[in-house]
Design a protein around this nucleic acid. Structure first.
Lengths: 213, 213
DNA sequence: AGGAGCGCTGTAATTACATGA
DNA sequence: ATCATGTAATTACAGCGCTCC
């Protein structure tokens, strides 16, 4: 029951009509040789089914669009007074004005989102650079600290025979630090290899495109 | 002048035109109704020009939408074969199928954008925390280094009478550091990597936070 | 040399639902 | 609690750019 086709009964007449309108939709199958990558098949069909070439024009005129745009710039919301006034000024139905504003708001939202996205993205890239800078600074400091401790060690040993000094302050004299990498890998020096930045600079605006393919 | 005042009543004209062009194409009246959803009334027909009960077209049935959706999941692009087959299966014009796919792609793009946006945003927040951590670590290390140098200073003074050893390597023995806070650590020496190892080494290293928070 | 086909963007209009007065 | 408005999602069309015959 509730058969899957009770409300979608597209009148069958209309199917007939369509099949009339599109007589030879299927072209004779051009035998293709290989089809590992069928490319894009092109086909020729449909003669002018649309006999009545009546233009259904939508699209508001430039003046209308301008005025609406201007009004939108002032305030995205639309009170009915403004709506009616605009409708009158533009020679449109109030309904159309309302619709225009609704759609405009939606568009604006999307545009805003895109903006925010690219702003955030460049900010993110900046953060990456900075993080790297900080990380290398940390490494550098650790190395220096390690050297300093070695130095302290040496000096302490040398002075041990003499008046046994104690470290009066600071909590850093010993431990508290793990040796930086330099002990393990031998070399740390300048590990400033090269690598092109993956995608740091595309023009602002369309860089997310590569997400969609 | 050609088009400044012709859009007032396109609702009506447009409808008529459409119904002329596509005699029964649009699902008439949304017959899909079994549920007692009295809904709210449409609205009062203020503009009297909509006198004729022209069908309000549109809205695909759930099955149609499902099949389309399913097909879209497989592949966002639509080759004409698929288009025609779908159109046949669904009882729609190929044109409608194409339009549906187009709109669906646009929608998908927006959704993707939103997704990417929020991902990026949370990533950004994470970066902020991490940057903070790194900064505090830098501060701490600088302080420790400062302490170490003081210590070295003391030990050196004490051992001045003896053979003045030299520091074998490194570049840290003297200056090169100012009191904590310096900010620009002199050399740039290569922009360190920009590749960003999402989270390679700082897993359990968040104990710095509670030192400064 | 040119048009058929398709994808994309922008725009208009409609549907369905939520909400405030 | 009816009615105008808001949002979100849908359906549709135009116009451009591209590619492939």
């Amino acid at each position: 029951m509730t058969n899957t086709m009770n409300h979608q009964k597209i009148d069958h007449d209309h199917m007939v009509l369509i099949s009339q309108l599109y007589p030879g939709v299927y072209t004779p199958m051009i035998p293709q040789q290989g089809e590992p990558k069928p490319k894009r098949r092109r086909k020729k069909n449909k003669g002018g089914e649309n006999g009545s070439g009546v233009a259904k024009k939508r699209k508001l005129s430039a003046e209308q669009a301008d005025l609406l745009e201007q009004n939108f710039g002032n305030e995205h919301k639309l009170e009915s007074e403004r709506k009616d006034k605009l409708a009158l000024d533009l020679g449109l139905e109030p309904r159309q004005v309302a619709v225009w504003f609704q759609n405009r708001r939606a568009r604006w939202k999307n545009k805003k989102l895109e903006e925010e996205y690219s702003k955030l993205k460049s900010s993110h890239e900046g953060d990456m650079v900075e993080k790297c800078r900080l990380e290398s600074e940390v490494l550098k400091l650790k190395e220096q600290l390690s050297e300093a401790k070695k130095e302290i060690q040496r000096l302490s040993e040398r002075a041990e025979g003499v008046s046994s000094s104690h470290s009066p302050s600071s909590s850093l004299t010993m431990e508290a630090m793990d040796p930086p990498f330099l002990g393990e890998f031998g070399v740390v020096e300048t590990y400033d290899d090269v690598f092109f930045v993956p995608e740091s600079n595309y023009g602002p605006g369309t860089e997310w495109m590569n997400l969609f393919m």
